[in-house]
Simulated scan of single mutants.
Amino acid sequence: MVRVLFLGGLGRSGTTLIERVLGELPGICGLGEVVHLWRRDVLDDERCGCGERFSRCPFWREVGGEAFGGWDADLALRVIGLRDAIERTRYLPELAAPRLRTARARLVAEYTEAYLRIYRAAATVAGAQVVVDSSKHASLAFCLRWQRDVDLRVVHVVRDPRGVAYSWTRTRLRPEADGSAEMTRYPPARSALLWNAHNAAFGILERLGTPVHRVRYERFVAEPATAVEQIRRFAGLPPQPRPPAFLTDHGARLGRCHSAAGNPMRFLTGDVELRCDDAWRAELPAPSRRLVGALTAPLLGAYGYPLGTVRRPVPAGAPR
């Protein structure tokens, strides 16, 4: 059995940052968003977090050899087809049922077997006790709960939905694509509805018996040493008497990683400041802030966020 820390939540909530920090811990290997590995890496040969093309990355070449005897386009297409058939938000009610229908169970078993092989191979190659998959998708976590050889432990990452909404409106390039490709953007109303759906799904997963540890992004960046130690214990790793040396007074010292897909910050190395990105307080228009707050109100209080917000003034001369 392989132990997997699955970072779940809606995108732009800080999962890549948390994965990068956790990946610096002894015994933990961060893999990035494995759900996107099949298309972006195996088929499109985008860049690994280490900077190399996926096909030339020594780590992933060894993982592919250990898991499948080498990466294969036909396998990637098969897994992508299975994902489209079973791993979608609309299938969550069926995946949450006490039992799966026979035909569905076979597809889920085949789909999760591919992930199991990657997790096992990565743990072997890295000499790790725990692997971190920051795929975020609740639907993938619901599939993985049926894989008996995966010790699934979910770190549910939550961020203020107004900060998430602002992040989804910004234009960002995908440097791994080596071109002008941009990351997906959503209007505030859509991101608010997605925030509700994704976060509520992890609450259901917890009620179904999957271990879930909830982390607020804002608390993580404010108290990283405490948050990291709590996650270490949740992962079943032995406690440490002192904070990790790579955590500095104001940030973290990050080495090279092999995140297969994810936010562009996976390419950063060296000293990285850990601070709460709350630019949304000044930059997200008041009507959008009120709309997002209203749409997410049922869950805001449950996660400790206030319904109302104070708009932070934009400094004189700052770009708008």
Rank of each mutant, 00 (worst) to 15 (best):
N199E: 04
P224T: 08
A200N: 04
G255T: 08
D45K: 03
G32S: 06
G49H: 05
R214M: 03
C257M: 12
I18C: 06
D44T: 05
R56G: 12
Q230A: 13
A197Y: 09
R289E: 00
R216H: 04
Q129P: 00
P319S: 13
H250C: 11
M265H: 05
L116V: 09
R275P: 00
G179I: 12
L307C: 01
M183N: 02
G301P: 01
P315V: 04
D271H: 14
F59L: 09
Y91W: 10
P175A: 09
V157M: 07
T169M: 14
P187W: 07
E206G: 15
D41Y: 00
R104N: 01
R174M: 10
A138Q: 03
F202T: 05
A297L: 13
A103F: 02
E66D: 07
L31W: 06
P287H: 10
A245H: 09
T112W: 01
R290V: 15
A121D: 00
W60C: 12
R56T: 08
R290S: 14
A260M: 06
P224H: 06
A316C: 03
L43S: 10
P161S: 12
L194K: 13
A286D: 13
F234D: 00
A141F: 02
M1D: 11
I231M: 15
A128M: 06
P161H: 09
